[in-house]
């Protein structure tokens, strides 16, 4: 195996385009585990941490652009980002231990294509946009449009994500992410939900986006769950309808981490609990 530090994204793309079995290395908390377990054996590792801008969190058009090599810990320490998108930040901060937080990146979490990736439902709910660099140049794509299936994204050959943009947000908005795990830490999500709300002046939900993780081949948006909340001050009935819409959207697998029945039930519970947190963060009174 070769290890190469890419100087800029053009070099990184060129290295991905050599025809070798190349993998990108940012935080490395997934690719090094896969190599250790013998699941992956790349012939080339392209380290993208030295590329200018890749390690930055920068304000842009009222929102924030987060570089592909920014660690979870760095996101958690960024007061402005945390104030604007607390749900996204807490989702990223749930990935692994403190030690893993020191390395793991939000973009890496997205690129793994895991249905259970913590950051992805929160990014979906937030309407995050990925910036993609490839042989034919730079393009932007909604994170929601990138998801393909377990372990797969719609990134093309030799394409990489250089950053993710979290847009500006209106007043009275808030987001939250919750996941269920059997312990309090150190597990992979069994079911999870990201909720992003905008309220009107009366505390009723004006806009709502709900996304679920670990209950389908990819993280999924659940428009019906969001619709169930719109117009409501988050009363019990709206929450029940939201939970029911979430359950209806579930298409999980039975495995060592949870049953179909369990994941389906929990997805609704996580969504309604996350909705309540998001509502409070948006200034609503429960």
């Amino acid at each position: 195996m070769r290890y190469v530090v890419a100087k800029d994204s053009r070099e990184a793309v060129a290295l991905l385009n050599t025809g070798e079995n190349a993998r990108l290395l940012a935080g490395g908390t997934d690719v090094l585990v896969q190599m250790k377990l013998g699941n992956k054996a790349p012939s080339l590792l392209v380290d993208i941490k030295a590329i200018i801008g890749f390690s930055d969190i920068s304000a842009e058009n009222g929102g924030f652009r987060i570089g592909a090599a920014v660690s979870g810990a760095e996101m958690g320490e960024h007061a402005g980002l945390k104030a604007m998108w607390p749900g996204v930040v807490e989702a990223v901060e749930l990935i692994g231990s403190t030690q893993v937080q020191g390395r793991a990146t939000m973009v890496g979490n997205l690129c793994n294509g895991s249905p259970a990736a913590d950051a992805v439902p929160a990014m979906l709910a937030a309407g995050a946009v990925a910036r993609i660099e490839g042989p034919s140049g730079t393009r932007d794509m909604q994170v929601a449009d990138l998801l393909e299936g377990p372990g797969k994204t719609k990134l093309g050959k030799a394409e990489l994500i250089s950053s993710v943009y979290l847009p500006a947000r209106p007043e009275r908005s808030g987001d939250a992410y919750l996941r269920f795990i059997p312990r309090t830490e150190m597990d992979i999500a069994v079911a999870s939900a990201g909720v992003n709300l905008v309220l009107d002046e009366n505390g009723c939900v004006l806009e709502a986006t709900v996304a679920l993780g670990a209950v389908a081949p990819t993280a999924v948006m659940v428009p019906n769950a969001g619709a169930a909340l719109v117009g409501s001050p988050l009363e019990e009935q709206a929450l029940e309808a939201c939970a029911a819409a979430c359950e209806a959207a579930c298409n999980p697998i039975d495995d060592k981490r949870g049953t179909v029945e369990f994941r389906t039930k929990i997805a609704g519970v996580m969504a309604t609990r996350a909705a309540k947190i998001a509502y409070t963060r948006a200034g609503g009174q429960l």
């Binding site: 312990r183 150190m186 597990d187 992979i188």
Partner: peptide, 24 residues
């Protein structure tokens, strides 16, 4: 220890063999 129908161990690691952690 979780075994599949194939008789193979499904959780040979601390990720899915869940011993208590400090926050539990």
């Amino acid at each position: 220890y979780i075994y599949g129908e194939d008789g193979l161990l499904q959780n040979p690691g601390f990720l899915d063999y869940r011993i208590p952690v400090a926050s539990d």
